[in-house]
């Protein structure tokens, strides 16, 4: 085969391959989607984070407005600390509350933010004070059984 035809085919091959990588990145992956370029981070302490993972979404009113960037254990207070990266275009009041929720019955866990009434806004490095930990199914069931037993005792 001639040199120019080979060059043409190889060029097409390389373009197709790069195009496939681009399609994977933009259409299949999340490179084009919710990637937060301008962000500020705040931290929140939880007594139990349940199954929350790094990169879990942070939602407010159900809309993704950030991601969990880091989770670590505070050895002094014996609490879990999650640092959240929030989109800069959204601001929240200083008394915003954060709670760990589960999407669906068995879905992934995310952090839900609910803004409060304070006129001061959360800034870079601030800490969310009002938090609600993840609901652990075992303790919930335990509590339910305990209550049932207590009710039964009263009925007699």
């Amino acid at each position: 085969m001639e040199r120019t035809t080979i060059d043409l085919w190889v060029g097409l091959f390389v373009l197709l391959g790069l195009g496939a990588i681009l399609v994977l990145a933009l259409k299949v992956g999340n490179l084009g989607g919710v990637n937060i370029a301008d962000s500020y981070s705040v931290t929140a302490n939880f007594s139990n984070i349940g199954g929350l993972k790094v990169r879990a979404p942070v939602k407010s009113a159900g809309v993704v407005i950030g991601r969990v960037s880091e989770i670590y254990f505070d050895g002094e207070r014996h609490e879990a600390v999650a640092s959240l990266k929030l989109d800069k275009q959204y601001s929240f009041s200083k008394d915003t509350s954060a709670s760990i929720m589960t999407s669906g019955l068995l879905g992934e866990q995310y952090i839900a933010l609910e803004t409060g009434g304070d006129s001061a806004q959360l800034k870079e490095g601030d800490k969310i004070k009002i938090t609600q930990s993840a609901v652990v199914l075992e303790s919930l069931i335990g509590q339910f059984i305990y209550n049932k037993a207590a009710d039964g005792g009263e009925g007699k």
Binding site: F13, L16, A20, I21, V23, L24
Partner: peptide, 15 residues
């Protein structure tokens, strides 16, 4: 050089 390109095309076609 061609292996990563072929794998990316395979995945894209598969999706």
């Amino acid at each position: 050089l061609s292996m990563p390109l072929l794998a990316a095309m395979f995945s894209a076609m598969g999706v």
